[in-house]
């Protein structure tokens, strides 16, 4: 394992929801190393998605710091934060969030057009196993295929970190396993740091490192010396 690439220091997040204050994160400190495959598990409402959004520069903490490659995100202005999301981070969402009016290829192009040194589009599509579905619209694809497009879209920018929010949450078991396998393979082949958040504790076994969250706090953090291949995970 190499140096720290992305992390938080004492990050808290409080939401104002109507007249109620919701404490989503409380003094969370976490470090992600370059090339690491990290799994963050926890039940609904434990603060996983909030942490991921803050790590990805999609949301700002109420207190604490987010550090990327030694630089605090708080120092970045709006346009630098956009550059950060554009060049350093790739997002994969539970419900894919593809643009329905664009084909698979065009959804990926949406990302490659943004950055200076994207990965080769055909190569990425091949890697996610969608060579023959490139000109299909999302409505013509299965959930697994749509998630592959979403992963290809995130990966094609050649980001430093891939943040995946419940990437298998909307998929059946078989497809979910394949997607996890794909993420692991990409992590290995491209050296991209991958963070997966999930409520599925079985997935934790495949991470290099596992963080367990509850009620906005990290309650356990452990290294996994013998990560399990995706195909051996059962839930």
């Amino acid at each position: 394992m190499s140096d720290d690439i992305l992390g938080t220091e004492q990050v808290s997040k409080v939401y104002q929801q109507g007249e109620v204050k919701v404490r989503a994160l409380q003094d969370v400190s976490v470090q992600m190393k370059s090339g690491e495959f990290i799994v963050i598990v926890g039940p609904s409402g434990s603060g996983k998605s909030t942490l991921l959004n803050i790590l990805g520069g999609m949301d700002v903490p109420t207190s604490g710091r987010v550090i990327y490659a030694g630089r605090s995100l708080a120092e970045l202005d709006e346009s630098e934060l956009t550059d950060y999301r554009r060049n350093e981070i790739g997002f994969v969402f539970q419900l894919y969030n593809l643009l329905s009016a664009l084909t698979a290829r065009e959804n990926v192009q949406l990302a490659t057009e943004l950055v200076n040194s994207p990965l080769e589009l055909d190569e990425v599509m091949h890697k996610v196993g969608l060579d023959d579905r490139m000109d299909h619209f999302p409505s013509q694809m299965s959930g697994g295929e749509q998630q592959r497009v979403a992963i290809a879209r995130a990966l094609a920018k050649n980001p430093g970190v891939l943040l995946c929010d419940e990437p298998t949450g909307a998929l059946d078991y078989e497809t979910g396993i394949k997607i996890l396998g794909l993420l692991r393979e990409l992590n290995r082949d491209y050296g991209t740091t991958v963070a997966i958040i999930t409520h599925n504790t079985a997935v934790a076994d495949m991470g290099d490192r596992v963080l367990r969250m509850r009620s906005g706090e990290i309650v356990e953090q452990r290294e996994n010396d013998d990560p399990v291949p995706a195909e051996r995970i059962v839930w």
Binding site: M58, R85, R86, F93, N97, A111, K157
Partner: peptide
């Protein structure tokens, strides 16, 4: 809204 979220998350500027 979700599309705008995706675009911004992907790195498109305001």
């Amino acid at each position: 809204r979700p599309t705008i979220g995706v675009l911004k998350a992907t790195g498109y500027t305001d």
